[in-house]
Simulated assay, not measured.
Amino acid sequence: MKLESITTFVTVAQSGSLSEAARRLRISRSVVSERLVDLEKELGTSLLQRTTRKVTVTENGTAFLTRAIRILHEVEEATADLAARRGSLSGPLRISAPVTFGRMHLGPALFPFLARHPEIQMTLDLNDRRVDAAADGYDAVIRHGPIPDSFLVAWEIATSRRILVASPAYLMQHTKPTSLAELEGHRGIFYAHRGGGDWRFVQNGHKKVVHGQSALVLNNGDMMRDAAIAGLGIALLPVFIISSAVRDGSLIMIDIGLTPEQEFIYIAHPDGRNPSAKLRAMAVWLKDTFGSPPYWETEFDEHLTS
């Protein structure tokens, strides 16, 4: 069984087209067909159902696909580990990360790392939806929030402080809250992937949950900040998103005497999968680049005290 045939099958299954697979692999469509025929003969079963309009994976093909992806991943990682033993990092690295953090901080931190290791072929998917790292084929996901209990192994790369904020216009129309009880009566702008209707704080080691009046539920931090600036309600957002708006007066900080629940920037990879040398190196690089506390919080605190 040839690896090039397995690679071709996986590419066809993921793209849904022999022509698209040929384009991605930079080979002719006839070579794609020949490799698929050879693989099906070797396995003694049909892996794909071909029609004039589309290609679909058969039941046996679906069963084989999961292991085929794993086989290719292991070969890639074995090759990369050998490169690491020679003192270089190489091979593919597929990462998912949130849009706002990716644009503002992850990209600028990653570009020097990739320039230093040009043999790494990184695919960075910026998406605010919660992905399944293993099923969706990611080597790891970078996320912002509380570190969850899951089938992922998480590495903290930075802490993330959050602050309650609202626009001057909103606070002129409503009494500025100074306690949990007063906060409960306010309109809130909430993050869709984290409850979508409450704020969480810590008081004397105990969690306190406040259910605000939902004005808007979003799945993107930039839009949450913009909605708060527009005066739609109060938002609980990380410093890296709201720092510039607080500096220019577009948003006002709100202190109710409690600390929001701790959140982190973290990298998580599927449990049971040995993380590659390049993934470990990237995690160390990001942690060192962001600092402890992270530079965006240090700069924000310096502004507040200046």
Rank of each mutant, 00 (worst) to 15 (best):
L3R: 09
S5T: 09
S5Y: 10
I6E: 13
F9V: 06
S17K: 04
S17N: 00
R23C: 02
L25A: 01
R26Y: 13
S28A: 12
S30L: 08
V31M: 12
E34A: 15
R35E: 05
D38G: 11
L43T: 03
G44Y: 09
L47S: 01
Q49P: 04
T51S: 12
T56W: 05
V57E: 00
T58Q: 05
G61L: 01
L65H: 05
L65E: 13
T66R: 13
R70S: 14
H73T: 15
V75K: 15
E76R: 14
E77W: 14
A80E: 13
G87T: 07
V99S: 06
V99L: 10
T100V: 10
R103E: 15
P108A: 07
A109K: 05
R116I: 07
I120P: 08
T123E: 13
T123N: 11
D128C: 03
A135R: 14
Y138M: 10
Y138A: 07
Y138L: 01
P146T: 06
A154C: 09
T159C: 08
T159H: 09
S160I: 08
A166G: 05
P168R: 07
A169D: 13
Q173R: 12
H174F: 03
H174Q: 11
T175W: 03
L180Y: 07
H186I: 01
Y191V: 03
A192W: 00
R194L: 00
F201V: 05
H206K: 12
K207L: 15
V210W: 01
Q213P: 05
S214M: 11
A215M: 02
L216A: 05
V217S: 03
N220A: 03
D222W: 12
M223P: 03
A227P: 02
A228D: 02
L237M: 07
I241R: 10
I242H: 04
I242M: 08
A245K: 01
V246S: 02
R247P: 03
S250I: 04
I254L: 00
G257I: 00
E261W: 04
Q262S: 13
I265R: 06
I267D: 06
I267K: 03
G272Q: 09
K278N: 09
V284E: 11
L286F: 08
K287L: 03
D288Q: 15
S292G: 04
P293A: 04
Y295H: 08
W296Y: 06
E302P: 05
T305Q: 13
S306I: 13
